[in-house]
Nucleic acid binder design. Structure first.
Lengths: 202, 202
DNA sequence: CTTTGATTTGACCAAACGGTCAAACTGACG
DNA sequence: CGTCAGTTTGACCGTTTGGTCAAATCAAAG
């Protein structure tokens, strides 16, 4: 495929369709479980045609992860050091929960990757991610020192937020199997609000 | 392989070695990512030799899941309706956390299965699991009615426990990447103890 | 209409995979 | 030692998979 040039209308359309289909398939089947043929069919293309736009299965996966990581951390970045501590944290929790509801495939793509040892994104985790988390835990430590929130381990606080919110997307089948007809997202927001309010109020 | 008979010494040894190797490989690579050859090598056998003990890749996976589900729910079963509510729930949390520490491969095997839609164990989830959870949520509802714990959504309480404890096993790479050299399990027990004590105390 | 670059495809390939099988080997027991 | 059920293996098979390629088709600009 010609590069170094402004992408044509067809290129834009097909690249978007491919990434959409790839997200569907990778998030549902994992990297190894996904086949190029299945992605191609889901995108409405033939396999060689798909490989005209992305040189390999791996390239699609990389493109998805890159796009994902770029936006996945935005809610944490948005946590404002100058805001009201409890409000800031509660807002972060709700933003993260909404991402699980609105982008479950992205969450599962990420989960698949991490559960299997993050072979392709380990560098980002101990680089960019760690840096951001370290920065935010310092903010939280500051809030604790000022006695504006209860004293808790800041790293584990963040882990708990990731865990509790992503769980609704990643373990969706299990949750719905246990809940029956009740929609998980009916009660989740207020449950998490209560939980973190009680945990953090000094 | 001859059945209907008492398993020989060699059978016991090899079946155990195979399941051990299969757990290693399945939990790290997922079902599709695992290859029979890799499991065989890890178990110290040739591929045809392994298939002499288990008729297929699927049979190994089923055997692992069956064994896992059998013990995975024990901590929840142990929650005693006649005990002190907060103690019972806190004890359940700690038992579940210890399972994440002691059996991370089992946790990841389960996580891989659920994230990808639980194709092989959906029946158990909406059957046995739902039944057990429904039973325990009634107990929790009773405790709430007696005002012995704070009013929270019992199902979401249980989801939160699963989520927070299994996260330490399933997302181990991410947690360690962010924490650096600190051992996650140093602070986790007291963090979760604090969290659930504050959440549940009326 | 013609040209030229972009796009699409059928046919194909090599490697990897799950699984089979007959034949060889081993070990426990009479 | 001989026997025979239990165990192991090399060679093999059909299928699936990621990826290639030359040739055909299309679309936009002159």
């Amino acid at each position: 495929m010609p590069s170094n040039r402004e992408p044509t209308r067809i290129q834009k359309k097909n690249r978007a369709a491919i990434l959409e289909a790839a997200l569907d398939v990778f998030s549902a089947q994992g990297y190894r479980g996904a086949t190029v043929d299945e992605i191609a069919t889901a995108a409405g293309l033939s396999k060689p045609n798909l490989l005209y736009y992305f040189p390999s299965k791996d390239a699609m996966h990389q493109a998805l992860l890159a796009r994902l990581l770029d936006t996945w951390l935005d809610p944490l970045r948005d946590m404002n050091p100058d805001g009201q501590p409890i409000d800031e944290i509660l807002a972060y929790v709700q933003r993260k929960l909404q991402m699980s509801r609105d982008y479950p495939r992205e969450s599962r793509l990420f989960a698949n990757e991490i559960v299997q040892g993050a072979p392709r994104i380990h560098a980002v985790l101990s680089g960019e991610l760690k840096k951001l988390v370290d920065e935010k835990t310092r903010v939280i430590d500051g809030w604790i020192a000022q006695r504006r929130i209860a004293a808790i381990h800041p790293h584990h606080l963040i882990f708990s937020i990731w865990s509790l919110t992503q769980h609704y997307a990643d373990f969706d089948v299990q949750i719905r199997a246990v809940l029956g007809s009740e929609d998980p997202y009916d009660a989740a927001p207020s449950f998490l609000d209560t939980l973190y309010r009680r945990l953090l109020t000094p």
